[in-house]
Simulated scan of single mutants.
Amino acid sequence: MDLSDERIRGLEIKEQQEQRAREWARAEQSWKTRLQRSGNAALLPSSPPRPHPSGAGVTDEDMLSMALHLRDIAARLVIAAGTKKGRSPSPATVMRMLCEYDEQTATSAST
């Protein structure tokens, strides 16, 4: 690897770091705005969401917003029976319930 390749690689790494910093700043600002608008800090996370350490760009602000909304919905639901009676289901459980419902409705609609 010659000097120009090393320099290009160094610039690429610096650009990736700057991109992560911008994403973090955007997420933090979004969190602060959401906190101001909601007026209820209990519905929001205790700290702003952090971007994935790998820097994978598979999520965006809309996905984050929907994930936070899903968590809010899960917190309002209460398990009625069983070992975890009276507790809230996890967002993963809520997603599983929605997927099962979609599968059942698709099956009944196709028959």
Rank of each mutant, 00 (worst) to 15 (best):
L70P: 00
E103K: 10
R96S: 00
T83M: 07
V78H: 01
D102P: 04
V58E: 13
D2R: 01
E100F: 03
M1A: 13
R20Y: 04
I13F: 03
R87T: 03
M95F: 02
D60E: 09
S4I: 07
A41S: 15
T111F: 10
P53C: 06
T83D: 15
Q19E: 14
E103C: 04
S54Y: 05
M63P: 02
S88V: 00
L68I: 10
K32W: 05
K84T: 06
D72T: 14
A109N: 07
R7E: 08
I79K: 03
L11Y: 06
L11C: 05
G55N: 03
A74T: 02
H69Y: 12
A25Q: 15
E100K: 02
K85Q: 06
T105N: 12
Y101V: 00
S110Y: 04
S47H: 10
S54M: 11
D60R: 00
T105I: 07
H52S: 15
R22I: 08
L11W: 10
S38N: 13
Y101E: 09
T111I: 10
D72M: 13
R87C: 08
E23K: 11
P89K: 01
A56E: 15
D60G: 09
P91T: 09
G10D: 14
D62G: 15
P48W: 15
L44W: 00
A92N: 10
S46H: 13
E23D: 14
A56R: 15
G57D: 12
M1Y: 13
A27Q: 11
D60Y: 01
S4P: 02
R22H: 11
L35R: 05
E61Y: 04
M95I: 08
G39L: 02
T33R: 12
Q29T: 12
V94M: 01
W31C: 06
T105W: 07
H52G: 11
H69I: 04
A74S: 07
R96P: 00
L43D: 09
S47L: 02
Y101S: 10
S38R: 12
E28V: 09
K14E: 06
N40S: 09
E15Q: 15
E6W: 07
D5I: 05
R34E: 14
A81V: 05
G86F: 04
R26C: 10
K85G: 01
T93P: 00
A25W: 04
L70C: 02
L3T: 08
L98P: 01
